[in-house]
């Protein structure tokens, strides 16, 4: 497998037509992975009372785009991903992928969870292959496709390793391989690096950028790390909680691969952080209230 950033998909899954060179790939790509969300509302009923977690979400993601979503916990960003992937389909409004309304799960939409969710009794290879069980991919070709995707996430040599034998970063890369092996039009990433230590995080961020440049599927990543969101995203969606709303959409007009030291990224980071921390929402008020109370408790 070549590691140069050529936006071409391995042709093992059904494609719209025969691909001839870059132009063919371009046209195939433009037909894949366009996500449209319009006036999406979602409520949970907690002990009798309905609580709105997502309120009037409108968002269009272009095919092949990398979109990051940041926001404080409770802004419904993970709920949004669960709705898009189809694990939860109680909502009002519309979610469409390439024009088709989302109902239940589909192999067109992959997801990587915060916990890698690899099955501990399966080797890395078997875990990745599990995703292909219910596909048209001929059995004779599966091994090669699995090997290609393990190579894509730089885990060649660990095919026979069990999840407990992998480090946190390796397990998360394995989960990415499993999610990509079905060639989904859209890959959702739900705080995929949230459980990793700072150094591993940076490493897997670089890997993720390389994989996305090589793969060019549409990716939507939820994170609470503004820097990570900016480093990877073509656009960053800033959400505020209670109820979850889109507050701002930031265009990150920098080519990939990016330089972490870029002044643009740092300026945007300060702006977004200011936006997130200045927002006078219920929770921050509560938090402040608690903070004021604490010293008086200590005085007693």
């Amino acid at each position: 497998m070549s590691f140069e950033p050529v936006p071409q998909r391995p042709p093992h899954l059904s494609q719209t037509g025969p691909q001839t060179g870059i132009a063919g790939a371009e046209s195939a790509r433009s037909a894949r992975g366009a996500l449209t969300i319009s006036s999406l509302d979602k409520s949970f009923t907690i002990s009798g009372t309905a609580r709105k977690v997502l309120d009037g979400i409108n968002l269009t993601v272009r095919p092949g785009e990398f979109v990051s979503i940041v926001g404080a916990s409770g802004c419904g960003k993970s709920t949004l991903l669960r709705l898009i992937v189809g694990l939860d389909d109680e909502y009002t409004g519309e979610i469409r992928l390439d024009g088709e309304r989302v109902a239940t799960t589909s192999l067109d939409r992959g997801i990587v969870f915060q916990d890698h969710r690899l099955f501990p009794w399966m080797t890395l290879e078997q875990n990745v292959e599990l995703a292909l069980l219910n596909t048209d991919v001929p059995k004779s070709r599966r091994a090669q496709i699995v090997a290609d995707h393990i190579a894509l996430v730089n885990l060649t040599g660990f095919e026979k390793a069990y999840p407990h034998q992998l480090s946190g970063g390796m397990a998360q890369r394995a989960a990415i391989a499993r999610a990509l092996v079905t060639e989904p039009k859209l890959l959702l990433l739900d705080e995929p690096l949230g459980a990793l230590d700072a150094l591993t995080r940076v490493h897997v961020q670089n890997e993720l950028q390389r994989i996305w440049m090589q793969q060019r599927s549409t990716m939507v990543m939820v994170t609470h790390d503004v820097e990570e969101a900016l480093y990877l995203g073509d656009r960053v969606i800033v959400m505020t909680p209670h109820p979850g709303r889109i507050r701002r959409i930031v265009d990150v007009d920098l080519p990939h691969p990016r330089d972490r030291r870029s002044p643009v990224l740092h300026r945007l980071k300060d702006e977004i952080l200011a936006e997130l921390t200045a927002a006078p929402t219920d929770t921050t008020d509560d938090a402040r209230g608690n903070l004021v109370l604490l010293p008086t408790r200590e005085d007693r």
């Binding site: 799960t105 997801i111 969710r117 069980l133």
Partner: peptide
């Protein structure tokens, strides 16, 4: 969580 993984991969 494991049933969800199965659901995602149909």
């Amino acid at each position: 969580a494991w049933f969800e993984v199965a659901q995602v991969y149909r």
